Simulated assay, not measured.
Amino acid sequence: MRIVQLSDLHFGTETPAVLEALLAACAQIEPVLVLLSGDLTQRARRHEFDACRQLIQQLAPAQVLAVPGNHDLPLFNVWHRFRAPYAGFRRVFGWQLEPVFETPELLVVGVNTTDPRRHVDGHFDTHSVEQVAGKLQSSSAKLKLVVGHHPVDAVLASDEQNIAGGARAAMQRWCEAGMQLYLAGHIHYPFFAPLSRRYPDLPDQAWTVQAGTAISTRTRDGKPNSFNLIDADLEMRVLSLTRWDFNAESGRFDPAEQVQLPLGV
């Protein structure tokens, strides 16, 4: 089972050659599911969402699950930000802001960490945390993932302020309910880490999967455009996490870092 995580596309700032290389890499990987972990647009404009829709069509036959990021809410149009903040997102992805993808083997639950009252910062709403926990607990799937936009861990000191409010309580609750991976974006700095690194009371087998920016010019700290591949061998109960980086010289994405961990908590 192959799942691709794309994040922080920021359509409106995309690099065409990187987008072409991304589509080629996805065609090679042939994922069953593509997860879009927010900031799909730069300014929530109609043409930016239309470009994202075109990407989704090109990713077929893979199914797509998306959650909004803070950039997917209007910034300058105050009326729309507070009266219809998710209108553009919903025009492409439907009404549900916390979508669910479920098969007998896989459960993916989306969580909306954005708030129209907050320009950048994210948080975990108590009601959403309990809703997600209920879905995790009621599922018998072997692999259970939660995807949001804002991170729950950081590598750089400057990113500490970007950790979503209520992260500790949410991770504790979801790990108790059976979550194995939490996937996020927002900071454009990719890494994989066990949740126990920041939250020592959590199981070592539960990890956070942090994505970089897939196609935008808004890379940071020398990190290239990248995306993540989750490869689950359900029979062997092994999970592989691989980061694919864009190589400007070759004009393609290649595997750059991989970790393997047992499937289960």
Rank of each mutant, 00 (worst) to 15 (best):
C26R: 00
R43I: 14
V120C: 08
E249K: 14
R90N: 10
R173E: 12
H119Q: 13
F124E: 04
A84R: 13
V109H: 06
D245A: 09
V100D: 11
L65A: 03
R252F: 02
P31Y: 08
P203M: 12
A84S: 15
E30R: 15
E105L: 15
D231F: 06
S37L: 01
H186E: 09
A211S: 14
R53P: 10
Q42A: 12
L75E: 13
A51N: 05
P255A: 12
C175S: 11
L107V: 06
V265N: 14
F227Y: 02
G185A: 09
L9H: 04
G222V: 12
P68Q: 09
G12W: 01
L97I: 08
E20N: 04
I29H: 00
D245G: 05
P200T: 06
A44P: 03
V18C: 02
R197G: 08
A62Q: 04
L195V: 09
E20M: 07
D115Y: 09
H80P: 11
L19R: 03
A66K: 04
H127R: 11
Q131N: 15
A84E: 14
F246R: 00
F124T: 07
N247G: 07
R83P: 03
Y182M: 04
N247W: 14
C175M: 03
A21W: 00
C175I: 10
V147R: 03
M236D: 14
Y199R: 07
D115P: 02
V259G: 01
Q96E: 15
G94C: 04
I230V: 11
E160K: 13
N225D: 02
D121C: 12
R237Q: 11
R46S: 13
L23S: 03
A44C: 10
G165P: 02
A24H: 05
A133G: 06
V92Y: 04
L73Q: 11
P262M: 12
S37W: 05
P194W: 03
P224D: 06
D233G: 08
W174R: 01
Q57L: 10
H150F: 06
S250Y: 10
L65Q: 05
V64L: 04
R198S: 14
L241S: 03
I230R: 02
E14D: 14
H150T: 02
S7T: 01
F101I: 07
V120G: 05
C52F: 10
A62K: 07
P151M: 05
N162D: 13
P61F: 01
A66D: 05
L36Q: 00
L9P: 00
P190K: 07
V259Q: 10
V67K: 04
H186N: 13
T126G: 14
D245T: 06
H80G: 14
A24Y: 01
A62C: 04
T217V: 07
L136P: 00
L65G: 06
V100C: 07
V132I: 11
T126N: 10
D231G: 03
D125A: 15
L9W: 05
Q260C: 12
H47P: 07
S140T: 15
V78W: 11
K144N: 04
G185V: 01
S216W: 01
Q258A: 14
F11M: 03
P104D: 08
R237D: 10
E14F: 09
G122T: 10
F124L: 13
V18F: 07
H10I: 02
F124I: 09
A214G: 00
S140Q: 15
V4H: 00
R237E: 13
S138V: 07
D159V: 05
A170Q: 02
